[in-house]
Design a protein around this nucleic acid. Structure first.
Lengths: 189, 189
DNA sequence: TAACATGTAGACAGGTCTGTATATTTCAGG
DNA sequence: CCTGAAATATACAGACCTGTCTACATGTTA
């Protein structure tokens, strides 16, 4: 049972880290935005890194919940749901304040594979792939995990390129890529 | 005509930034590794940011030159060269010390679009796309730029996922994606 | 030899960062 | 009303950061 102050801390931290990056945001700034004293932070978390991991775990739950809800709202057949991932994601990355995939950024800023932050990012990517793989299996893909890797890579490619220098055609081109891969991997009934 | 010391600075900086990140590496560490005095740095560059831009420009030239050389060595027909991009890139990302695309990382650490570092990263992605687009046009693609966006996104997706948590099947799955996209966009003669 | 550009060494200013220590306040439950 | 847990304000240590400054060494060229 997380306290209210704890939630507020993680919430503020997530917003700041998403906008400005992990190393670029100091603890004092998080505290000011959350309206919380420094000792309160260090009562709930052992270190800044532990706070970062908590923000990634929150974002992971939130992102996957949002993705699944949205995908299931847009389509009912597993095959159509696979395809619906990309218009859904496009809506997200088209937001003007979109600042890239926070998990990719976390893994980049904390490069050592055994760092807890890096591992939290890796776990998120794994879970997203797992969801895609489940959909692909339900849709009758011969190699659902393989398709999950392919679509996962497309998603990350979309986010990276959109953040570096967005472009009208990008989202549509990536969506078309996904359609071709899905069409090829899952025979139409 | 860049001085020898200047080249040494950029070279050391590139190595450190690739391994550890831009914010994580201080100037003193670059100076120690390069064996150069601090004033020498500030005689050649106005700021650390300017040094970072120089390292990105060096890496851009080096990466594209390597990519083109390798691709042209592996195949002679434009269409085969497009396909050869992915085994070539796979060789790079399979290195144990691979630490992700430094341009994506730069754009992540310097999020503001108008920051010189961000712009240098964007310029690199644009130039890579331009190369792909040229190959695609020579291969007879109907929409070479569109294919370039698709393959560029695949490249970034490969690099992000390999760095976050590499996997045997990833490179192969992405290569297969590229093959399908190319087959679909360029009719076999 | 003299002038000049280039690089070196090292201290320093002024700021930031994480994490700790201390002393005080708030507030709910018995 | 009293006790105790939780949060607060604030100062601080120790480290790191970028960028500047000064004084000195080196080596090339005229």
């Amino acid at each position: 049972m997380p306290s209210a102050k704890q939630e507020q801390l993680v919430e503020s931290a997530l917003g700041l880290f998403e906008r400005l990056g992990f190393h670029a945001v100091g603890i004092d700034r998080v505290l000011a935005e959350a309206g919380v004293a420094k000792m309160t932070l260090y009562n709930h978390f052992r270190s800044k890194d532990e706070l970062i991991v908590a923000t990634l775990e929150l974002k992971d739950r939130r992102f996957r919940s949002w993705l699944m809800t949205e995908v299931e709202r847009r389509a009912s057949e597993p095959r159509d749901r696979l395809l619906a991932i990309f218009p859904t994601l496009s809506e997200e990355v088209d937001q003007p304040e979109f600042s890239g995939c926070i998990f990719a950024r976390a893994a980049a800023e904390f490069g050592e594979m055994d760092h807890p932050v890096h591992q939290a990012a890796a776990e998120h990517k794994r879970l997203v792939r797992q969801y895609i793989s489940t959909l692909a299996a339900a849709a009758g893909a011969a190699e659902p995990q393989r398709l999950a890797f392919q679509l996962g890579a497309l998603m990350d490619g979309l986010m990276v390129n959109q953040q570096i220098g967005g472009c009208e055609v990008l989202c549509d081109a990536v969506h078309e890529s996904a359609r071709k891969l899905i069409d090829d991997a899952i025979p139409v009934k």
